[in-house]
Design a binder for these strands. Structure first.
Lengths: 197, 197
DNA sequence: CGTCTATTTGAATGTACTCAAAAGCGGTGG
DNA sequence: CCACCGCTTTTGAGTACATTCAAATAGACG
């Protein structure tokens, strides 16, 4: 892969560990760069997920479609974050989640076949990925707690405050799905907040 | 630490990676073994959490106390699992969670000061911990989804089915807290399930 | 056997959902 | 430039799931 295209990833990794010139080149030689259009799927429920993807630009949603055809959004991923069905990736079993692009999206993709080799060749990279997943786990647990201890309104306010960039980029009904409420109810919450001012 | 006491940990680690005699000895020399009584706290909300703990025997609950004094249980940990406030541990900032023993509990403790050294000396151990945290993250995401897409009743049935050992060991009001419902409502769900038979 | 804690039961209430319909909004074509 | 189409958001009425509070019952332990 061309160094220029990999730069956002290298900058990101540099926040966790520092790689030598050679290590950077080795890393870049192993990963794949790809563009997706709005609406395209990176992972589909039922398929085995073969990649962990770093988002260079764009935006994706990770969601689960339940038996009633209802969509439940687990996360959004924008620039400098990751997207995948990690459960499917690490076990190489069918994915529970879909990952779909909400915008034109550029990704750097780490394939299952390559990642073990990368960890072995560059142990620092394993440290980096451990740290990233640790942080992701912590956020996931905190989110679980928010869902238990906060009302829908407070969850929305938290989201708005924490991810203002994301809110502006996605339709409201997806925010509702992420918060675990219906689009109608989110609409009511918003109008209530306006009246309170 | 005496090898005998560390055996449950070594057996557990052996499922992920294989350590040489020397590595095992090095590991055991760095970790701490400790017993807690029922009711004692391993971590308290507000303190910095200095350990990641492997549960040799016993049972703990990890919970968050909200501003109304309401307890929200994030997880239970029993034999062969881990307990800590990882968020606090990795950032060395005050803990959001409490970890309390529900039974007499034996732990093997990895201190913050030691763990980096262990990762560096035994890179395989970093792999092991990465894999463990990956799995924990995946379960956390799946649980989030269950909380959105299942009713309280179905969440209870899932829990009962998935963690029968845990259900038998802890009072019902804690199960309710873990499921994110009140103790009264769980009681009603149970009586409803009995009537359905 | 009494005390303390955990569980159950019931009535009233509240938060969030469903369904249906209307209004808003952005793009496309005539 | 306006009219229409599809999609998103809003609004309202009725409903369901889960909570609160209070009181009764059951269980565990000394």
């Amino acid at each position: 892969m061309i160094k220029e295209k990999g730069q956002p990833l290298l900058n990101y990794i540099d926040k966790h560990i520092s790689l030598s010139q050679k290590e950077e080149e080795f890393l870049l030689s192993k990963i794949k760069y790809r563009k997706y259009l709005k609406g395209q799927f990176i992972v589909q429920q039922g398929d085995v997920c073969n990649y962990e993807c770093f988002v260079v630009s764009g935006c994706t949603k990770t969601f689960y479609m339940d038996e009633d055809g209802q969509e439940h959004i687990v996360m959004f991923s924008i620039e400098d974050w990751w997207t995948s069905d990690i459960g499917s990736f690490i076990t190489q079993t069918p994915a529970d989640f879909n990952v779909q692009c909400l915008e034109k999206t550029e990704l750097i993709m780490f394939s299952f076949d390559i990642i073990e080799e990368l960890y072995t060749e560059i142990p620092k990279l394993e440290r980096c990925f451990r740290q990233i997943i640790e942080k992701a786990f912590v956020s996931s647990q905190k989110r679980l707690i928010r869902n238990f201890s906060l009302s829908a309104k407070d969850r929305y306010l938290y989201f708005k405050n924490q991810y203002p960039k994301i809110e502006q980029r996605i339709p409201q009904y997806m925010v509702a799905s992420y918060l675990g409420i219906t689009k109608e109810f989110l609409s009511k919450i918003k109008s209530q907040l306006i009246q309170e001012q």
